[in-house]
């Protein structure tokens, strides 16, 4: 068998010129039984690599990791207890908002009702008073004008008397 190709590969391997596939060829070659004497010194290197490739974790490892992961997931849920209460907080907030709005609306309605009644009372009273004033206005005005007239008349008589008296004096 011609081992020239293997020799070439090995030379290129030391110089880091081999591809991954060529390196695998070397490992496969050295793992099989027939290895020429001149290549035997390097056999252990490739056998070692191949042996190490088969090194694996135990079968129970997957279960342990999955259990740990589930634990961390559950833990994460526990940590997010506060966030799980969010719907409750939201509901409370909504209720609080509605209560506040309700109370505010009720007060506003009460106020409106009270205001309307008052204004209606004021209006009615005002209207009544106004109408009373309007009704009473002519008579009072008449009284004022009469008074004024009397005063004017009285003043003119008095002034006339003064003039007379003055003339006399």
């Amino acid at each position: 068998m011609d081992y020239k190709y293997i020799h070439q590969l090995l030379e290129r391997y030391w110089k880091c010129e081999t591809t991954i596939e060529e390196e695998q060829i070397l490992r496969t070659f050295f793992s099989q039984g027939e290895v020429p004497v001149e290549l035997l010194p390097y056999r252990s290197l490739f056998v070692y690599e191949k042996e190490l490739q088969d090194l694996q974790l135990g079968v129970d490892f997957d279960e342990r990791v999955m259990a740990e992961i589930n634990k961390t997931t559950v833990k994460a849920r526990k940590v997010s207890f506060a966030s799980s209460m969010k719907p409750f907080y939201k509901a409370v907030a909504v209720v609080a908002v509605f209560l506040t709005l309700g109370i505010a609306a009720e007060k506003a309605i009460d106020k409106n009702n009270a205001g309307n009644d008052y204004s209606s009372v004021v209006d009615k009273a005002g209207y009544a008073r106004q109408s009373h004033i309007v009704n009473e206005e002519p008579s009072s005005l008449m009284m004022v004008s009469e008074g004024l007239n009397k005063t004017i008349d009285g003043d003119s008589v008095a002034s006339m008397n003064v003039e007379k008296n003055g003339v006399k004096e």
């Binding site: 039984g33 056999r43 252990s44 290197l45 056998v47 070692y48 042996e51 190490l52 088969d54 090194l55 694996q56």
Partner: peptide, 25 residues
């Protein structure tokens, strides 16, 4: 770990010398 894994001695071609050499590697 290496010895607990796929045993070199399973290979009929393997020998004590090879084992020693593998350990050397």
């Amino acid at each position: 770990a290496l010895h607990d894994s796929a045993e070199i001695s399973d290979n009929p071609e393997s020998s004590l010398e090879l084992k020693d050499r593998v350990e050397l590697v």
